[in-house]
């Protein structure tokens, strides 16, 4: 690397058949696990965010309903957006650590062992 700035990784596709890797059960499993988490989660948080935005935009009286003291429904729903963002973040990290990283690491090692000349920098990381 470092000699050819155009290709993301200096034409390395030639020596490895990526379509074959793509068809392996292990890779299909990794892709399934990744997508089955991130797609539903993305749909969920976008729906929840836009539900909140629409309420704030068009249901002022509902949002102004007092809950306790000067805290109203709007303040609570707004703070819940923070809570849900933090919760989804932690959930995803724990899922990725348990379900994605081990499979990705084993695939990566297999590929790097099978074709070290392609994936391991021949200059040994020295630029």
């Amino acid at each position: 690397m470092g000699s050819h700035p155009v290709e993301p990784d200096a034409g390395s596709g030639a020596a490895v058949d990526f379509t074959e890797v793509q068809q392996t059960e292990q890779f299909k499993e990794l892709r399934k696990r990744h997508r089955s988490f991130v797609f539903p989660m993305a749909v969920f948080f976008l729906l929840w965010y836009f539900a909140y935005v629409l309420l704030a935009d068009y249901a002022h009286e509902f949002m102004a309903t007092p809950v306790f003291g000067n805290i109203n429904v709007g303040i609570i729903l707004g703070l819940l957006q923070f809570v849900s963002t933090f919760a989804i973040t932690m959930w995803y990290v724990s899922y990725a650590n348990r379900r994605l990283d081990p499979i990705a690491a084993s695939l990566r090692h297999e590929l790097e062992e099978a074709a070290p000349e392609v994936f391991v920098d021949p200059s040994g990381g020295k630029k």
């Binding site: 990784d9 390395s12 990526f18 892709r31 990705a104 990566r108 590929l111 920098d121 990381g125």
Partner: peptide, 17 residues
């Protein structure tokens, strides 16, 4: 195929120097 495999596994991604 190369992009998909690389994106999910990180194979061949440039490491720290």
């Amino acid at each position: 195929a190369e992009m998909e495999v690389r994106s999910l596994t990180g194979v061949g991604a440039e490491k720290a120097t």
